[in-house]
Every structure is written in structure tokens, then in C-alpha cells.
Design a protein around this nucleic acid. Structure first.
Lengths: 215, 215, 215, 215
DNA sequence: AATGAATGAGCCTTCATTCAT
DNA sequence: GATGAATGAAGGCTCATTCAT
């Protein structure tokens, strides 16, 4: 970040440097409030280079989105694959998430905290990204059904559980910011504690009902 | 939208009409992409009026934030207070949330989906709003500890659970958009199923641990 | 140009002032080389007003085009109508043209000297304008056929003559710039001299042929 | 467009290729709206080469202007010289013009349809070009005076006639675009019909006057 | 001989905001 | 109480032009 940003940097490298800068600015200010000028300056170049390489502000944001989504999903897969049992796979997935978010907080903001004020193209890409992440989680969840075949667990339930997990994890991201001493492992453990039993019950079709009989 | 917006509307009413319009626009476009022009036109008045009543774009957004936060918290309290047992209180809170979000989708977007691209003043107000909501939930959670004594349940655990619940509920908001036939009651029931047992365990200090012995 | 341009000018007036300024700048620099800033300054206001009233640079140019085309055609019609005989009508038309061009040189440049570098919308409007002018002249020419019915004169010939006349007149515009002492009346007379006889012959079907017999 | 544009093209050839490309682009888009990038790409080289060979965008345009003007005047002279009689010389000149314009429409646009939006240097060169062409025509016209003596025909009259002819021919360029089946020979014939008699009268000092006695 | 990398400057456009009526 | 007129400031984008290789 000090010497490589000097003149005459080959295009592929410069592109990554620009995206690096862009993620920082987009995360801090949001899409509309970010100015390409600021991104260019942070990347150590001038505006025309940004447009030459990434086409437009929208293209720049899309590039950020794609690169980080790929990274997150890769991290997720790399850990959930090898784990031997359902609960360890779930744990591995949660851990991968919290580790990624700890390591790349800006990426997560860009990936997930940009509701509204986006152009159609960006909104579409973002929706695709989210679907990919939720699909990943949903697939993982489907392998967690009690003793037997995944077929026993309807997709609908798995999706519901996936949304719950992703939302909970997302929100815990904020909690982590208030508790910096807590390592991803402990967050993961605590979240496992909260959801593992209930999740299994849900996937197995056991339901909680309103105790007495009220509204 | 037809007659009331005519001339000679008393100030407090006008203000509410402006805020109504603003919430719609802010939810659709986001803060920065919203233009005061569009809000004024939707409210049926001219721009200088907006400035006369709400001071600035920022003030306008703050007014939206305050009004809707108040409404959501009120809805929450109104239902959790009367419920007799812990689990019914929790259920009532969740139901209140999902009902509110169903009834006022724009409000929820403005309240919660506006990360980044906000001015400091707005970010502060928004943080306050979220803290209020989380505090409310956290308090509720604290009453759900097993045998009764809130003292047995450390604030830390309650907070963690609150973040998990709010995040899960928030995310299920998206799930609801994909399943419009599902009423708030069923969402509430399913979420209760997923978290009730685990939550109790967590609040009681029972912990899940990595089964065999791995990373 | 000194006092009326002060603050608080009603919209219709301002619009005309802006168009006045725009014609001057567009004529001097051409469409692309003109900057809205310069036009605004010359009009005694700031850029946002130009956009508020005329929408865009393109809209501004279109407004110039429409206003001046209307004026030129009006001047043309006003004089050709009353004239009693064919040759006097033609003479009146030519005189109207040269008088208009003398009085509004910038208008003529904007109307006719803007080949290429125009947006599609402008090109279309400009084509319409030229067709209107040529149609006017062509109609006039058609009434100049020798003794009798305009039917005797095919549209094709009239069009050819109209193009010739308009082109000649246009070019003489440059000649006039080099001979400022020459009044429109004399130019008109000289052009009548050059074309009247030949035109009549052409419209009557008499043709010149290569004398001997060569390539 | 396939092989010659490969590497190792000698400089003079490359220059001509660049000018070829430039004329096409300048004619289509106009001076300001043309980008050096597009010209370079069309010429099959990179931008720095354009600057190395032609110095600047302005120099590039000037080169186009000079080359095409030379070609047009050459074509004009080549045909008017040998013709034996005045009317055949005029006919030959007109024919040369219409033939050239038919063969090189882009050249004509660049040479003649670029009023305004030009830099001073270009405007000057363009004025010189036009003067050259008009001078050529004017000289030709001077040899058309009735009985022979050019002295009998004042320069002033010849100039006036030249402007008329050039303007008429220019405008007929547009007419030709609407009548692609009409060959240069026929256009020439029709224009001769329209102007030959009147031109002779003018050059001989015979004047048309307002018939009765009006404004 | 040729090119990829880089930039200073400028232009169109929009927006939040205010003044004068 | 309400509005039309007006603006300072900024942002996205492009372009002619040059340098270092």
C-alpha cells in the first residue's frame, strides 16, 4: 500500500487496487454518497483510470460485489466440505462466516448492507449474491436433518432455517463490534447453542405450540 | 391523497402528510437517492414548505425515523406487557414485530435497512433507535430465564440472544416477501420452534460443545 | 440587455433571454463547442436555471431552432403572399430571406450551418426545418411556371429549382459578409437577374444541351 | 482494411491511412464530436501514433482539409482546362464538382459542411480552401463573358456569380442524396439550364428590373 | 516503430437550499 | 401561509494529450 501504488502498475494489479479502495469507501459511505474521486485518490490514481478499467461507478460497485461474494462463498465451502458430521458442518459454516466478517468487515457491509438506493443492475447482482449465500446455507442445513435422508426435510423448512441463521449471524456482526474480545469461535459456539436443538426439531417436524390457548 | 392535501391544512397535519410521503420515497430510493423535490411533490406542496416544517433533508429523515421507531416500540410494548408467561411474552413480541413489518413495510426499510450513506446525525439517531429496539427485546429475553430470577441470567447472554432474535426476525422479513401467504402468526410459530429450546438452554448456562474434539 | 436581466424575471421572459443568448453562442461556437456555462452567463443567470427551463443542452438548441425557424418562415410568408405576379412573388421571397439573414445572422447560422455533430433529436428537427423552408420555396417556385397552371410544372423540377435557389441564397450570405454596403434589395435584384430567365425555361421544359457533342 | 494495416507500414502510407480514417469520422460526427480514439482504432493503430504523425487533433483535421481540397481543385482544373468554349468549360467545371462529390461524399462534408465549432487555425485553413475554390470558379466565370473580353466583365460580377454557382451546387448536393439515380451529368445539365442564360446576361450587364414599380 | 499507463481539465447535469414576493 | 425564481457546490463522465517502456 506504499510502494506498489507508484506509477506504471500493470492493469490487473491496478484493477485490484482500485477495487480494494472502492470497497473501503463504499462500505463507509454507501453507494450514492461515495464519490469516484475519493475512491481514485485512495487507490493512488486519478479518476479517468477508474473509468478506463471499470467503466462506471456502477461497474466499479459490481466488481466489488463479485470479487467479495466469490471470496465469501469460497471460504464457506472450503470449511464445510471436509467436516464429517452435520453439526460440525454447520459449526464450520458459521465459523467460516464469522471469521470472514472479522477479517473483511467492509466486504460484508458492501455485500449485505446496501439495501435500496442501488441501480437495477446492482440490485440484480446483489440479489444473485444473496441467493447464492442463502442457497449455500440452505444446502448445508438440509444435511442436518436428524438421522436420515435429506428427503425427509422439506426444502421449505430448510430455507426458513437458512434465513433465520443468516439473519442471526448478520445481526451478531453488530454484536461483535461491541465485543471485540470475543473470537469467532465463541460466537459460533454460542449461536450453535441457540439454534442447534431447535433447528433439529424443526427439520424433524416437531413443533412448539402456544401452551394454553391464546391469540 | 385527493382532498386533504388541498390548501389550508393545519401545520401538524401537514407535517404528518410530509412524513408519510417521505417514508415512501426514502424506503424506495434510500436516503441519498431521494430528492426533496420528489417528496414535496408527493406530499402535494412546494419545496420551501418542506424546509419550513422540517428544516432540512436530514431533519425530514430524522422525523421519519422518530415517528416510526416510536410506533414500532409502542406496538411491541402493547403486546408483551399483558402476556402472562415468558414464552408467551416472547411469542407476543415476535408477533408484534412481524405484524408491524407486514403492515408498514416502508417503515421497516427506513428504520433498519439504511446502513451507511447517512449523515452523522442520522446515523446517531438510527443507532439510538436500534438500541432501543434491542433493549426492549433484551429486557424481554431476560424475563425468559428458566426458573424465574432475572439475576440468574447475565445481561451479556440476554444481549447475545436479543441480537440473534432481532437479526433472525429481520432476515425473515425477506423470507416473508417470498411467501406472502404465510401470516405473521405462522412465522412467529416457526421462529419460536427454532429458538425457544436453545434460548432457554443458553440463558440457563447449558452449553453445546464440539462433539468429538476438533478445531 | 441591461436592466431587465436583473433578478426576479418571470419565466416566459427569462426563457426568451436564454434562447437569445444561446443563439449567439451556438452560432459562434457550434453545438458541441458551446458550453451551457457560457450561455448561462451571457443570459445573466446561472446554469441550473437553464436546465430548469430548457431541460438540457439539446432542449436548449431545439428551442433555438424552433423559434428561429418559425420567425424565418413567417417573414417569408408575410411577403410572398400579397405579391401579385410570379416574378414579384419570387423577388419578395428572396428579399425576405436576405433581409432576415441581414437582420439575424446568428439565427441563420444556427438554422442552416450546423451539419453533422448533432444529436439525433436535433438532426431530426433540423431536417424538418429545412424541409419546411424548401417546401415554402418550392411552393413559391411552382407558381412561377410560365403563363399557366402549376400542374404544367412537375414537382420534381420545382424542387430542383428550390434547392438551387436556397443554396445560391445561402452562399450569397457569405458574399454579403464581404460586401456589407450592398443592401438586401440589390442582392435580390442580382440573383433575380441570374435565375429568372433560366428558371422559367426550366419550368417550361426548355432545355439547354451540350452544343457540339461531347462527354 | 485487412492486411495493409498490419505492422511495418512505411510512414507516408500510414499517414494516408490515418487521414482516410479521420475523414470518415470527421464527416460522420463533426470535428468536436470526433474522438481521436475512434480515429486511431479505425486506422488500426494506437493513439500515440496519431500524435506522432499528425501532431494533434487540429493537425489531423488540417491534414484532411489540405489533402481533400487539393484533390477537388485538381479535379476541377483537369477538366476545365481542355474545354474549348466558355459554356463547355462551365459545364466541365460543374460536372467535375458533382462527380467529385458523388465519389467522395465525406470529403465534401469535411471541406464544406463544418461551419463554426472549429479552432481558429482550422477556420483559417477552411476559409483559404473556400476562397481557392471560389477563385477557381470565379476565374472560370470570367471567361464566360459574352463576346470574349474578360475586361468587359467586372470582377465583382464574376464573384457574385461564383458564389451563386457554388452555393447552388452545394445545395444540390443534398438534392442528389434524395435522388440517387440521377447521375452527375444530368444534374450538371439541369443546373446549366437554370443559370447559363441569366449568367450571360448578368456578365454582359443586362439587368432585370422590378416590372411595374414597387418596393 | 509502437504501446500501455496515466492525467489535467472541462462539461453536462442535479441537488439541497434560500430569497423575494 | 405559500410559491416561483434563483444559486453554490458537487458529481459522473470524457477527452486530448503525454510519458515510460
Amino acid at each position: 500500500m506504499s510502494d506498489i501504488r507508484r506509477r506504471r502498475v500493470p492493469r490487473p494489479v491496478r484493477e485490484q487496487l482500485i477495487i480494494d479502495a472502492a470497497i473501503g469507501v463504499f462500505a463507509k459511505r454507501g453507494y450514492h454518497a461515495s464519490s469516484v474521486d475519493e475512491i481514485a485518490e485512495l487507490a493512488g490514481i486519478t479518476k479517468p483510470m477508474v473509468y478506463l478499467y471499470l467503466d462506471s461507478k456502477e461497474g466499479l460497485f459490481l466488481a466489488c460485489l463479485r470479487r467479495e461474494a466469490e471470496r465469501l462463498v469460497a471460504a464457506f465451502r472450503a470449511t464445510t466440505g471436509p467436516a464429517p458430521s452435520p453439526e460440525l458442518r454447520l459449526r464450520a459454516g458459521l465459523l467460516a462466516f464469522f471469521t470472514f466478517v472479522t477479517a473483511h468487515p467492509d466486504s460484508w457491509v458492501v455485500l449485505h448492507r446496501q439495501a435500496s438506493e442501488l441501480t437495477p443492475a446492482i440490485a440484480a447482482e446483489l440479489a444473485r449474491t444473496r441467493r447464492a449465500l442463502l442457497g449455500e446455507v440452505s444446502g448445508l442445513v438440509r444435511t442436518c436433518g436428524a438421522e436420515g435422508a435429506g428427503a425427509a426435510c422439506p426444502d421449505d423448512e430448510a430455507d426458513f432455517v437458512a434465513y433465520t441463521l443468516v439473519g442471526a449471524a448478520d445481526s451478531l456482526t453488530d454484536w461483535m463490534a461491541l465485543h471485540p474480545e470475543e473470537p469467532p469461535e465463541r460466537i459460533t459456539l454460542r449461536l450453535m447453542n441457540m439454534v442447534w436443538v431447535g433447528m433439529r426439531n424443526v427439520l424433524d417436524g416437531e413443533v412448539w405450540t402456544t401452551p394454553a390457548g391464546e391469540a
